[in-house]
């Protein structure tokens, strides 16, 4: 019997993110927690979930203990339905075949924009981060779920650089910029689950994770939080979910 309280933030994030997916969906997953969460959902309740990787894979089934070090490694193709070029798989986003894009980010803001390019002024950056990869394409072209650790320096009013667009500056600014489809749908953290309010397109808390108060959440967030009228409480991870996460990632490659 597993001790329910005894899980890492990354394990919690993986489990809560996996719950956002439904059977039959086509999911474009980034490496790390998104890949693990999509695999967890597929094994637990969504056998018909189709996972796409930007390396060029349709219908991946990742093997327990053999998590790939990136979405471009041969391990990503195990038992897949199809292997194709990376431009081709990204074009599936543009054509509209992808139900959910699933990724992480270094920094997120109140409109769900993600930064994975620069910390500080882009002209004289404090830190040059790796960059967009397929993140910008996923965020521009699909409904997106973001999974990330909740820290004040990561949850900011305005990101230093919009690498992957959420609702840009709120309201209809995303659409007006030419991004006609998609948008950030959920942000899942180790403290709470967030959605976006329909009109202003600003982030709002829809459910608090077990043991997290409004005050603690606000203290760890760099902008004033809105709470949904019917604020929920997240169900804690089940033993089954935890067991499976640990079976998939026994070496804690993604869930340390």
């Amino acid at each position: 019997m597993l001790e329910k309280r005894n899980y890492t933030a990354a394990e919690l994030l993986t489990i809560l993110s996996a719950r956002q997916l439904s059977d039959g969906q086509v999911v474009f997953a980034g490496v790390g927690i998104p890949l693990l969460a999509a695999t967890l959902a597929q094994r637990l309740r969504c056998p018909g979930l189709t996972i796409l990787f930007e390396g060029g894979v349709i219908g991946a089934f990742i093997e327990p203990g053999k998590l790939p070090p990136s979405t471009n490694d041969q391990r990503c193709t195990k038992r897949a339905n199809m292997v194709l070029g990376s431009a081709e798989v990204l074009l599936l986003l543009q054509r509209g075949y992808v139900d959910v894009g699933f990724m992480s980010g270094a920094q997120v803001d109140q409109y769900g924009n993600l930064n994975s390019s620069f910390i500080g002024d882009p002209l004289r950056p404090k830190t040059r981060l790796p960059g967009t990869g397929g993140g910008n394409d996923i965020a521009s072209l699909a409904q997106m779920i973001v999974a990330m650790k909740h820290e004040k320096r990561r949850f900011v009013e305005q990101v230093d650089f919009i690498t992957s667009p959420g609702y840009l500056h709120g309201r209809d600014t995303r659409r007006k910029s030419g991004l006609l489809a998609g948008g950030t749908f959920r942000v899942v953290t180790d403290l709470a689950v967030f959605g976006f309010e329909d009109e202003k397109r600003r982030m709002q808390v829809i459910s608090l994770n077990p043991g997290v108060t409004r005050e603690r959440l606000q203290d760890n967030t760099g902008f004033a939080l809105d709470f949904a009228p019917h604020l929920g409480v997240t169900e804690p991870p089940t033993d089954q979910e935890l067991e499976l996460v640990r079976e998939l990632d026994p070496d804690r490659l993604y869930t340390a």
Binding site: S117, S164, P165, G178
Partner: peptide, 18 residues
């Protein structure tokens, strides 16, 4: 293409034209 629009990735690349 239909991505990069509206982002700062686009702003840094004036050689791409909207």
């Amino acid at each position: 293409i239909r991505s990069m629009l509206g982002s700062d990735v686009q702003k840094q690349r004036p050689e791409a034209i909207e």
